Simulated assay, not measured.
Amino acid sequence: MARIAIDMDGVMADLTQHYINWYAERYGVTVARESLHGIPETTGFPQEGVVKQFLYTPGFFRTAPVMPGSQEVIKALSEQHEVFIVSAATEFPQSLSEKQEWLGEHFPFITWRNIVFCGLKTIVDADYMIDDYDKNLRYFKGEKLLFTAPHNMLLEDYTRVNTWEEVAKYFSLVPATTSPAV
């Protein structure tokens, strides 16, 4: 049984889409996801600096959309491995309760014992880490899986997984949506 550390933002929660949606709702401009490829997160919007403020806005983390396929794959992983959700949530203190509530709603099978809210992730001791940020993977001692996000499109130093379906294949999980052949 492997220990797997999984990041929330950009991995379980689709923050890029959330930025795009919130920006469109507030400023009437829809930014194409592809236009954000290869640039730092929260940049690339017509009014620079505005999107970063979303991270400090009550309700932002609570209403983030779930990354497609994450619920099914993480449930399957947790049935075969020791799974911990690891989020550098203390950077945004108001996010702590919102992230806890979000996990309870969308991932009810993850118990409080398997949720780690921290600052730096250098403390994390696991066999695998799935994260979208180089700063979190760089010093990790186990197997590093970079979950694709617009801000990391230019990174080539890690094993990349683009979707949760690819994560399932990496860990040799049988997709939950596929029925066995009869």
Rank of each mutant, 00 (worst) to 15 (best):
M67D: 04
A24T: 02
D157T: 00
N21P: 10
E79T: 06
Y158F: 13
F171V: 04
F147A: 10
Y133F: 13
V29Q: 10
E34Y: 02
V161A: 07
I4F: 05
T111N: 06
W22R: 12
E34A: 15
K169M: 10
W112A: 15
N152A: 09
D9E: 11
L77R: 04
A76D: 11
Y27M: 10
N114K: 14
P150E: 06
P46D: 00
A5P: 09
M8L: 13
E48A: 15
F45R: 05
I6A: 03
M153A: 12
V29G: 03
V73K: 01
A89P: 02
R62Y: 12
T111V: 01
G59T: 01
I85N: 04
E41H: 01
Y27K: 15
K99T: 00
I6W: 02
V50R: 10
R138M: 12
I20R: 08
E34N: 06
F171A: 09
F92G: 03
W164L: 09
A149E: 11
G69A: 05
I85L: 15
E101S: 03
K144H: 10
F61K: 08
D127Q: 00
H37L: 15
L103F: 07
V161H: 02
G38E: 06
T177Y: 09
Q47H: 14
L55R: 11
A168N: 02
L137M: 08
L36E: 03
F54K: 06
Q100N: 00
D157K: 13
P58K: 07
F117G: 06
E79H: 00
G119Q: 09
G38Q: 05
V83M: 08
I115M: 10
Y23F: 12
N162Y: 09
R3D: 07
Y170L: 06
G142S: 04
W102P: 03
A88F: 03
A64S: 15
L77Q: 01
T42D: 09
W112L: 14
R113W: 09
V29R: 02
H18W: 14
E156Q: 12
Q17K: 12
A2M: 00
A76S: 15
F147M: 13
A168E: 08
A5V: 00
E98H: 08
Y19T: 01
A24H: 12
S35A: 15
E98A: 04
E41F: 00
Y27W: 07
G10W: 01
Y133Q: 14
A149G: 06
F45V: 02
R160G: 00
V31T: 14
F61T: 05
D14T: 09
N21T: 12
T90H: 14
F117M: 08
T16S: 02
V124W: 07
T111Q: 06
A5Y: 05
V11L: 01
M153P: 03
F54G: 01
E101A: 15
L146H: 06
R3G: 06
L96A: 08
T57N: 08
V116A: 09
E156C: 10
I4V: 12
Y133M: 14
T148R: 14
F140L: 11
I74C: 11
L173F: 07
V182E: 01
G69D: 01
E72T: 05
T148E: 10
Y27H: 15
R138S: 10
I20Y: 08
L96I: 12
A149T: 11
G44F: 09
L154I: 05
D127H: 02
D134P: 07
R33I: 07
F54W: 00
Y170P: 03
H37R: 14
V116W: 10
V73I: 05
V66S: 02
